[in-house]
Design a protein around this nucleic acid. Sequence first.
DNA 1: GTGAAAGCGCTAACAA
DNA 2: TTGTTAGCGCTTTCAC
Lengths: 348, 348
Amino acid sequence: MSEPTHETAQELAPPPERARTITDLARIAGVSPGTVSRALAGKSLVNAKTRERIEALAREHGFRLNQMASRLRRQKTGVIGVAIPLGHDRRQHISDAFFMTLLGYLADELTERGYDLMLRRVIPDRDGDWLDRFVGSGMVDGVIVIGQSDQFERIEAAAARFLPMVVWGNHQEGQRHCVVGTDNFAGGRLAAERLIAAGASTIGFLGSTDPIEFAARYAGAKSVADDKGVPIRALPTHLSPEHAADEIAAHLASDMAGIDGIFAASDMLAIACMTELQKRGIDVPGGMKLVGFDDLPIASQTRPALTTIRQDIAAGAARLADLLLRRMGGENTASVVLPPELVGRQTA
Amino acid sequence: MSEPTHETAQELAPPPERARTITDLARIAGVSPGTVSRALAGKSLVNAKTRERIEALAREHGFRLNQMASRLRRQKTGVIGVAIPLGHDRRQHISDAFFMTLLGYLADELTERGYDLMLRRVIPDRDGDWLDRFVGSGMVDGVIVIGQSDQFERIEAAAARFLPMVVWGNHQEGQRHCVVGTDNFAGGRLAAERLIAAGASTIGFLGSTDPIEFAARYAGAKSVADDKGVPIRALPTHLSPEHAADEIAAHLASDMAGIDGIFAASDMLAIACMTELQKRGIDVPGGMKLVGFDDLPIASQTRPALTTIRQDIAAGAARLADLLLRRMGGENTASVVLPPELVGRQTA
DNA sequence: GTGAAAGCGCTAACAA
DNA sequence: TTGTTAGCGCTTTCAC
């Protein structure tokens, strides 16, 4: 790939011959490739002097171990695959704020433990075989799926044959795959309770109910609303705030009959909604109560500050990493459901 | 890794023998491994009938090509390495909002073109050899470095020997490595001009000047301030908003003598600053003008909406991807400096 | 159009 | 302690 040209002759010594393979280095050192391999791996059974000499030569000749070959041979990659399926909304980008935040924490956790992350964005309906291809690619030791999207069944199927996989998402009674996630139903209940306590008499659920997580949030809110005799209905939008803005505006313009409390499926939608409300001169929370979901860092920075349902993303990432490593060690771990938490601020 | 147990006997046919390697499949199909390889690769010189038969058998027996082996043999990985050096601030996490947003767009771009991303978070002072190790690992076809941090010299050195590398960051006269980034100096000028036009008589620069990009922003602002006879000085903080909040509070409590305009090194710092100002009852922009940098999606959602210097992140990601692919093709591309743009909102 | 054979660069038995 | 050897699973000449 590179062409090591020697443009200026500043050094007196000739440039050291470049050792590309372990065999090159072995020849230079006058030992066998096996010894070089052992020396570089820090194996105890190699003579300390020999090791030091080989290490020095490796530095001098710019030698780097070819990880592809090493990993093929050892049948271990040191890489965790992270898949982000975007099935429920083709136009949703990987740049989604919640996923990115979770990914950031995951990268921190896993890098800390010596793994690299291989990121793959997936459009399931373009490629029905995406998950099996990923887990069977030989490129990763384990897989984390961020979000079930509308791929619940496919994930179940893969889980039957592939142990080292953990999923961020919603937990269903009796499911097979190991999932870490917030109790979305309980979160939905908290949101509706807060809206009703704040005086809302009719509730709108803003967002999509296609992804199973969001459906559970809606179901939770509905269970509370039904109990208290408060009407609730869905205000469907796409999930990325840019695409949702117009849809929100359209709802606000024509579709609100009586709605005075909005439960947004995510903070980003809640914030987009707040902007649209303010454009129309509707006071929050005076004219409209608003509750989000996620508690992204931004939620506390809006004016008025957003009341929302907190998912502990850092804790979630830590659990994902921990469970995955245990599964990679052969353990069959149970799912983890994290409790959501109401963060009461100013919008409801 | 997985143990394909056959728990229930729901199927009538016996479960198909699992073909793990191309040799397994060849034996089942009664052909040679070479033929299977050619068939699966869609090579033209294989009989159409044979190919179809092999493809069917591959599906039936759940065969997946081992990418590690394939890539070792072909000396091509299909993976782009993305390194995020965190040298200037050990406590800064990869979950930094700007980096994550850029990474999201990059993932969109590169996945679209058939590449996977391998993410690596780097703490340079723990590992002086990080970049050479990464580019020489044999695991990636090309490398994108997000942010120069304080690693300018090391990146220069790697660029001398390794062509397929592109860096997001600041451009220096005469530098060797190919960089894509905003003209930070010009951005700093825009910010200072705006603050002064809004009536600021003394300017504080909030953030760190260790990373070269931020130093350039400060230098740009200073050049304008000096021209106009407006005092300017640095209010140093860490870069992650969580860690910076207390430092900002401390500055506001003791260190502001005369400062009535703040240029924050990033939007996240600006937002954290706004929150601290509001806590103290200082009106923005009445009591303090404020300008950020980045124009993250959040910037338009704060109240008051943040005046900031826009970096076109999506365009930047597209250029990074484009240049890298050209370099992987052997071309020696020039750097790209994107113009910043003032986005005038309500805080200055 | 297909098979046989030689590696990609490395590691780990097994010998010495 | 070190060398030799046989692969990891795949691709690609070179024959036929």
